[in-house]
Nucleic acid binder design. Structure first.
Lengths: 139, 139
DNA sequence: CTGCGTGCAAATGCTTTGCATATGT
DNA sequence: ACATATGCAAAGCATTTGCACGCAG
């Protein structure tokens, strides 16, 4: 029932498929794939179609309820959204600042996937050249 | 002719397709996609088949002459290999160290792709829990 | 009852592969 | 000449889309 509430709180029509998927997401501490959700639904004799899984995940992402990670090779995984943060990159030439979404979520997921290591904290510092300065011929 | 030499130096049979692809890679300061190579070959009336492009890139990657970046959505780009480096992550519990390939190449490419900002240097610090400690119930 | 959600099947986009032919050394 | 590279066409894989039916509100 947990998933049901969560959906209603976010003005999403609570259907069998969505309730099940939401439940899975709420009870996963790590990111899961569309196929994992599908297979899981098959195990439970629910047979939620893959297209429905994808459409639900897309909806939840639009509503900012889940984060989508690119696993490479065209695969993605999804996790209930946690508080995100931003990073700032500063151009080494013009010193203008550019804000980017923290790219570490991706990295964390890649590392977890390849090595089993679970990243918890990070510190990241990027230096580079912004588009304009690059066009201006600095690099 | 430049590509030709580069290939021979690396014991790769120098064919028309490979020479052209190698030339493109050598003259690109940023990573390029298989499709870009293909289209470029069409423009030059060479019509190198996409499968040939992919097979060549695969070969060059195996020979460690190019780096392959995952652009997300199942797409990749390729760039002549630069000197790579490793990072070390240390488990916050058992303090064992784990060496990983620098994950920033991917990030750099993503940032370049999305914002036009060209990353040059980085500093990266990751803390986390290794697989064994996690299984042991610390997290 | 009415529109939105669903399953099914087919389409997509990038990449990979099988096979017969063409090409480099 | 002979192994290997190539083009072509078809397959593969995760994901997306069109459409007719079904269910939630």
């Amino acid at each position: 029932m947990e998933g049901q509430l969560y959906l209603k709180q976010n003005n999403i029509k609570a259907t069998k498929a969505r309730i099940y998927i939401m439940g899975l997401l709420l009870n996963s501490d790590s990111a899961i794939t569309a196929d994992y959700i599908y297979e899981s639904s098959v195990d439970k004799k629910l047979f939620i179609d893959l297209s429905t899984v994808y459409r639900t995940l897309e909806l939840l992402e639009e509503k900012s309820l889940v984060d989508k990670f690119d696993l490479g090779g065209g695969m993605n995984s999804f996790i209930i959204k946690k508080l995100g943060h931003k990073h700032t990159v500063e151009c080494s030439k013009c010193h203008r600042e550019l804000e980017i979404d923290c790219p570490m979520n991706q990295i964390d997921e890649l590392i977890r996937n390849k090595t089993g290591f679970t990243p918890i904290e990070h510190e990241l510092n990027i230096k580079g050249i912004c588009e304009q300065c690059k066009k201006a011929g600095f690099l």
